[in-house]
């Protein structure tokens, strides 16, 4: 049995370091949905290149690390309807709520933001319910 929680803790710490760099150097909150969403809907046009640089790091470092480190698998479903529905829900939901797991979760909770804490409670509850319904009741995932 591999101690996955140790990888979780170390990986989590590195995620937090990334957020700390983005906050202390650039003065910005590391929220994946906000950084990407601002590029998609044009609201972050003024800071477009900074956003692109962040996303380049986010995509390229795992590419290099995946080639060097341990065997990496995503195990994503191959049900195309589920993938599209899930992607739409995540895209729409995070932009309406103005944050996701990184912005509301990591950055919000760590500054004891009420909005971040409440958002996190609701997306975790909805996520748990989603798994119960679609896995255990309907059996589609």
């Amino acid at each position: 049995m591999q101690p996955d929680w140790i990888y979780g803790l170390i990986g989590g710490f590195i995620i937090g370091l990334g957020g700390a760099v983005y906050l202390l150097a650039n003065g910005r909150i590391m929220g994946a949905s906000g950084i990407l969403g601002g590029l998609v809907d044009g609201s972050g046009h003024d800071t477009g290149r900074e956003r692109l640089a962040f996303l380049a790091g986010l995509i390229l470092l795992p590419l290099l690390a995946a080639a060097l480190l341990r065997d990496v698998q995503t195990h994503a479903t191959e049900n195309i309807v589920v993938l599209i529905a899930a992607g739409l829900l995540v895209g729409i939901g995070t932009r309406i709520a103005n944050g996701c797991t990184s912005g509301h979760g990591v950055c919000g909770i760590s500054r004891l933001s009420l909005r971040g804490i409440v958002a996190t409670v609701f997306y975790i509850l909805a996520g748990g319910l989603s798994v119960v319904v679609f896995r255990h009741l309907l059996g589609v995932i």
Partner: peptide, 16 residues
């Protein structure tokens, strides 16, 4: 927004 996001997150196991 958070409820919609959570539903999609659970469905695919992916967030942004």
């Amino acid at each position: 927004g958070s409820v919609l996001f959570g539903m999609g997150w659970g469905l695919a196991g992916l967030c942004p």
